[in-house]
Amino acid sequence: MTPETGKPVLEVENLQTEFATAKGALRAVDGVSFSLSPGEIIGLVGESGSGKSVTGFSLLGLIDAPGRIAGGSVKLNGTELVGMSPQELRKRRGKEIAMIFQDPIATLNPLLTIGQQMEMALAAHETLSRRAAAEKSAEALARVGIPSARERLKSYPHEFSGGMRQRAAIAIALLHRPAVVVADEPTTALDVSIQAQIIHEMKALARDYGVAMIWISHDLAVVSALASRILVMYAGRLVEQGPSAQVLRDPRHPYTRGLIDSLPSATVPGQMLTQIPGSMPSLGALPPGCAFAPRCSYASDACGAKPDMVQAGRRGWRCVHPLGTEHKERAAS
């Protein structure tokens, strides 16, 4: 399922997002580039603090001060979003590009009914009679698998279960059938059984509506079940990208290898889980070269310079000691 024909719906070029602090600007997103075809689902993976959520918010222009998009380009259906006026950007949010968050209990307003919140999201982009709005909201709720949707419009978020709340939030985000949806860990706060259901339904929704999706997660297992391509992010930069199956089976970047090895399924039962030694450096104290070098067992002097993205077919990696390529090197020498 990789409908990668036609023009990309989203093109991100060298995106940079900075946060002003007392110690100078911290670059949370540093030169991220990728493109997204209509209906495609890609996974953006990394540890907390890797800049994956900030990347998601940057795409919608939702970076609050003291943060700002310092450079680069985000083109949605060919229109440049970086530097667009807030009013213009607002008209596109929710309509052409939408976002789903991690915790539905925090995103939905506890004091308003689901119906009222859906009506607000509808009214943001079109003028509808109250009746038509209710009609449309009920349809959207039914579409994400909420039974007796019409009556449920009168319910408050606390009267829903966790899974139903997230479904309602998804229904709100998809009300206007946007071309792109940024999903920021939307299943992390849910039970595992409900996780699987939601992932299954999101996949179906993406297919039916032709919505392209960026699925942000720290969980490689979730992403591999969903995304055709994986982007791995570390300390604000993309370190590896490529088709999911290839990246998972045969990673190039030692960090990706570490992420795969730390999955419980990669471990023999009874053994300790493998973990990547050390922790992510803070953005204010990044090493001059490869940011992963201090934690990397393959690191050498060559890692003291910032590695460029090496492109090979549909795959790319930012490492001077890529894994799984030794035999090719030997053959070449």
């Binding site: 919608l60 607002r90 596109r92 949010r93 976002m99 995103t107 939905l108 607000m120 999201a121 709100i172």
Partner: peptide
């Protein structure tokens, strides 16, 4: 997140 989510849905600041 309530306000962020509302903004992400394109709801105007006044609303």
């Amino acid at each position: 997140d309530t306000v962020k989510f509302a903004r992400a849905a394109g709801i105007p600041e006044g609303v």
